[in-house]
Amino acid sequence: MRRSERLLYAANGVDLRVADVELTGGGHVERPFVRTPPAAGAVVFHGGRVLLLWRHRLITDTWGWEIPLGEIGPDEEPEQAAARHVEEQTGWRPGPLLPLIRTRPGGDVADCDHLIFVAHQASPGAAPAAGADGERAEWQPTLDIQRLIGEQAITSATTSAALLHFLADLLRARPSH
């Protein structure tokens, strides 16, 4: 059980904190963790494909496919934030969004809370915001998702969880023979 926490450092909406945690059976330890604002994103599906972003992550110095995702703004509903991030990051406007999954990919090191939606259609919207060199949005076949995860072309925990959950929903919706 967390007894208390203290702030070590804060910048750009992210706090580094230390929690004083009481252990089962007595005693306590200090555990560092990162507190982040909640985020929303979406799996956008159309014509047997999903809309993904090819992104570079500075900390790991790796490139990979990810779903559009970003911070939920003040006074913004998660669904609105998800739609905004899809259009800003990809240039596509998602159709109606339905709740898909809520993930907390940070485990014991971060309190990340990601609310993910699904859209079963999309239409061209405004041009995406300028990204890093090589960053782009593409429609990837749903049949390639498992292979992309296996090849480490998708490593984001939120993206993997959302896409696998989405695929499970597709299989469940199929009529059985």
Rank of each mutant, 00 (worst) to 15 (best):
T90F: 09
T36R: 14
V29K: 11
I67P: 10
G150H: 13
V44S: 02
G107V: 02
W63G: 06
D75H: 09
R147E: 11
E76W: 08
R147I: 08
V43R: 08
G91P: 02
Q80F: 09
G41K: 07
P78C: 07
P38I: 01
T60N: 04
A129K: 12
G95V: 05
E66F: 15
G106K: 03
R147Y: 11
P105R: 00
T36N: 14
F33R: 05
P74G: 12
H85Q: 07
L143M: 14
R93Q: 13
E76Q: 15
A82G: 11
D133S: 13
D75L: 14
E66M: 14
E76A: 12
P74S: 15
T36W: 04
R104F: 09
L115T: 13
H56P: 05
Q80M: 11
V44I: 01
T60L: 11
T103K: 12
V44D: 03
V44H: 03
L53R: 15
H85G: 07
A40E: 03
V109P: 08
L100T: 06
H120V: 08
V118E: 03
P128L: 00
A132H: 13
V29S: 06
F117R: 02
D133W: 09
G125T: 07
H120A: 06
T142K: 10
I149K: 14
W54V: 01
W92N: 06
I145T: 09
V109N: 15
R136T: 12
L53H: 02
D111K: 00
G73C: 06
I145S: 08
E138C: 06
E79D: 11
G91Q: 04
V50T: 11
G64W: 07
L52S: 05
W65V: 11
R55S: 10
P99L: 03
T24R: 00
A130L: 13
G70I: 01
Q140M: 15
I145P: 02
A83H: 03
G70R: 01
P38H: 01
Q89E: 14
D108V: 14
V34N: 02
G41S: 07
